[in-house]
Design a protein around this nucleic acid. Structure first.
Lengths: 213, 213
DNA sequence: ATGTCTTTGTGAACGCGTGCACAAAGATGG
DNA sequence: CCATCTTTGTGCACGCGTTCACAAAGACAT
């Protein structure tokens, strides 16, 4: 029986072994003292806890470059996700196969959701279309939404939304890059600096509230 | 002079006002007691600290669906990023414009990096190509890499890598979705993972630290 | 069986980040 | 010029998560 100790796992993951054991203990007592954890059993238990053993049908709405990239992404299937349908507002896309799945028109959104028992939707539309699409998804029974559109979605209570902003990761890299350069970030305030930069803010001038780690 | 108080900002962001003030204080004393913070000045100072006022030339390697989606993503330009070049290994892509930028061949990678003074690279290639591309980027002087390929990259010290796994966000949604179903499987989970603050839409949510491969 | 050895599971201490509460600073009005 | 009011900046205390350290549990050898 192949096993691993918490010490080995902790070293591999770069975390503290006691924390790892305590985390595992929340899932139950799956280890054997003096031996460690049965690898296969542990993987199954964690997978189950995380919901990876279930089959999650998802729909992707907005089959542009990003939607197509997501449809082709191999990581989904191996993580328990099944692309139940691709949906786009462009009639010219209808029937066209992307990643082997025929694109369907937005008109049929509600029926597609209900027929497939979909509870997770991915929005990869342009910003303007995101909220209406979101509303229709929710009305059709979707309770979790992954939003790639650059908009903050408004949803009723009980619906989860996660927003993916592809530029945030770049910002974090740039932040560290800036520090590598040895930029001084001291307390000296450039006089009247604010008045030298009148514009600078785009349509969404929102700044991350928290410093990247 | 338009101003905001820490109280207003905290309410808008859903955080504690004292924490917000303390965070700001690390950047310097930019507020006026009895008045608040000069909006324009504050935006500038935060932008500067985060590196948003600098111009960061980036290259995107691998112009498939995802690379094209990134090239077309409007959020980059408004955050201080400039797509200096698109690079692909397919000779048929060479010269073809994507998002108004002609795709260049991988052969010229080193020259492109050096000519444009690029220090940030984005990898959107298939998994197999990612590490070789990464090595060439690093050798050419890139010190920050954003990796969309489903591979863990090995880099020398001093080089930052951030890996974006598009399925992780879906996993988090599925995790919460599973809990909504009210399933009882005998185990408990640390409170941090148990719920997501409503209104929070981002990748800063809570995920269990250990994922099965 | 009995003892030794390994590793888990967890109580307790520690450290750090968060939030409270208030003095200091500046605005504003009399 | 003084009084009052608002809001910042921050010392301090509290709470929570991380880490330490060890008893308990089981494997394994003799």
């Amino acid at each position: 029986m192949p096993t691993v100790s918490s010490e080995e796992l902790a070293a591999a993951a770069g975390v503290n072994s006691a924390k790892l054991r305590k985390d595992f203990s929340y899932l139950g007592s799956y280890g054997t003292r003096g031996v460690g954890y049965d690898v296969e059993y542990l993987v199954y238990q964690i997978s189950r806890e995380l919901g990876l053993t279930q089959d999650w049908p998802v729909v992707i709405v907005g089959i542009g470059n990003l939607g197509a990239a997501l449809a082709n992404y191999g990581g989904f299937a191996s993580r328990g996700f099944r692309v139940a349908a691709l949906i786009d507002a462009d009639p010219a896309m209808a029937g066209k196969p992307v990643a082997g799945i025929p694109v369907q028109h937005t008109d049929d959104l509600e029926k597609i959701i209900q027929d497939n028992g979909v509870s997770i939707g991915v929005i990869a539309t342009p910003a303007g279309a995101a909220q209406p699409v979101c509303d229709r998804l929710v009305a059709a029974g979707v309770t979790s939404i992954l939003n790639f559109a650059p908009t903050v979605l408004t949803v009723p209570d009980g619906v989860d939304v996660r927003k993916v902003d592809l530029s945030i990761e770049l910002q974090i890299l740039a932040f560290h890059e800036q520090r590598k350069a040895g930029e001084d970030h001291g307390g000296t305030v450039p006089p009247a600096a604010a008045h030298q930069e009148p514009g600078e803010q785009g349509p969404d001038g929102d700044v991350p509230a928290v410093m990247p780690a």
